[in-house]
Amino acid sequence: MNILIIEDERSLARELEIFLAGANYVCEICYNGKTASQKIAINLYDFILIDLGLPDYEGLDLLKEAKKNNPDAACIILTARAEVYDRIKGLDLGADDYLAKPFSMLELQSRMQAITRRKFGLKHTIITLGEFSVDLDNRTIAHNGTTISTITKKEYDLVAYLILHKNRTLTRPQLSEHIWGSIINDDCDSNYIDVHIKNIRKKLNTYAPADWLETVRGLGYKIKLN
């Protein structure tokens, strides 16, 4: 998939490119609004990431141009100006999602996947993990075709996030951010993730060993998947 990254912070744009390229996206970078506007007018993209805080261009104007010239592209707004006003305005103008800086790139990828699923209609995806199967559309985990109903929404979210970032160790802060990211919270403790993982294992182990859910000592958790 083709992505246009419009971000005036070169360092951040570069990291985004490294990350998304690693996830098999084809990236183009624009450091200013003017070249971005030209690129949007000429090329077709699947995703356009727009930083609202561009020095030379009104970010929301770029969004309008993108909607006009790249009607099929999914637009995600990235901004440090997390004002609610912009948020509403951005979504009204047809942005597909919105991420406030600082955001985790894992989260960005997760949002992009959700948009892809919604917008480009991926065919029914079922991931097989040992004796278990994870249905990414119905958001369920099943054992030999029987849905395990005790798995909560949060627990499914954790498994799905680990599957999306398969073979990559996700640290507790990263998992916490995904699960509780929108909550403004006074403490920086991320050990609750351990309780969640413990519960998931306990529930799954009554059916079959869930050894694909690995603990990476001192770092976090990962799901191995080929």
């Binding site: 990350f19 440090a80 990559r168």
Partner: peptide, 20 residues
């Protein structure tokens, strides 16, 4: 707060990429 968001964002991305 706004001005701090961008540098934090850069640092976070760099650390995330290094993990991989």
């Amino acid at each position: 707060s706004h001005e701090l968001m961008t540098p934090i964002s850069i640092l976070q991305s760099k650390i995330e990429n290094m993990f991989n």
